[in-house]
Amino acid sequence: MARSDPPPAPQRLDRAGLIQGLGAYGIWGVLPLFFWLLQGVDAAEVVAGRVLWSLGLLVIVILAMRRGQAIVAALRNPRAMLLLTASAALISVNWLVYIWAIHNGHVLEGSLGYFLNPLVNVLLGVVLLREKLGRAQVIAVVLAGVGVAVLAIGAGQGIWISLTLAFSFGFYGLVRKVAPVGALEGLTLETAILAPFGLAYLFWLSSHGGLAFGQEALPTAALVASGVVTAVPLLLFAGAARRLPYSTLGLLQYLAPTMQFILAISFFGEQMTLAHALCFALIWTGLAIFGIDNFLTARRRRIA
């Protein structure tokens, strides 16, 4: 009787990748605290500053990593530039709504938007990419839909924030998925596309006496630092995505909205209604089903 081969050893997680992933989602999780420092600054000025200072940092990174040729190749590709123009518009809407939500006491709805995002990605994959859903994914999406309906009926004034954040970032991810350009180069070109609009808005604000930059030390320093808090987690995420299994990265993505949720009801003192509680419970249940199914599927593939 032939002796069967021993089962393969479980794949060890890349420690550097795990640290990068935790760093990226950890920074995103505390972003409400950072943008709270800019309370009173026009949300569009924050976005403009975020774009311009991010671009400055990214150009330095591109030069240091000698990735200029990839930038030139993307600039010569009309399809790539068209897609990056669309993704730049989507991420600018996402940033603007998110910062406005923090400044106006809607951190809870912001965290809900990013809890919804993975399920929106599944929905967009089905509708636009003709992907097929498994049973667990169907259940997760249905539970999320019921949760959103409950919140819309019970506390509908902030649901537009959650849906705008979830769908703008969902479509952003979809566009970037099909754009023939790397993560670093894509983000650099997106910020370059948005930079003229940001500069024009800042000049307009300055001419109307509404520019916060340069007026007080704390807002000015925070606006400069916004480039770092934008680019650094995205670079960490890009590194983690190369090193970690997709299932692990998928589970890590719930860290940021969980941290934002905790900040909303603790530091920011936002009130959680019964509608919020039911909505979050339904979405968390759906996410748990979705995450466990992804984990088990990835494990079966490794064993096979």
Rank of each mutant, 00 (worst) to 15 (best):
A24D: 05
A281R: 01
R79Q: 12
S247T: 02
D5Y: 14
R50F: 04
R12N: 06
A70Y: 02
V93C: 08
V142C: 01
M259P: 08
A73N: 13
G23T: 01
A241L: 15
V138A: 14
L278V: 14
P180R: 04
Y246A: 15
V138Y: 07
A2V: 15
L236E: 11
M1Y: 07
G49H: 14
Q11K: 11
E216A: 14
A155Q: 14
S111A: 14
T258L: 09
A73W: 05
V141W: 07
A241E: 15
P118L: 08
I265D: 10
E185Y: 03
A222Y: 05
A217G: 01
L57I: 12
E131K: 12
A166Q: 10
L194Y: 03
G170I: 07
G154S: 04
L274T: 15
E185D: 02
L174E: 13
Q215H: 12
L187I: 11
Q260K: 08
T188W: 02
L128N: 04
L82K: 07
F268N: 04
A155C: 04
I292N: 10
V229F: 02
N77H: 04
P6Y: 14
L116A: 05
F237I: 08
L163N: 12
A298C: 08
A144Q: 05
R243F: 08
D42Y: 00
F203K: 09
Q271P: 05
V138D: 00
G239V: 14
T191P: 09
R15H: 11
L287C: 00
L255R: 09
M272N: 11
G23H: 04
G214C: 06
A183D: 12
D14G: 09
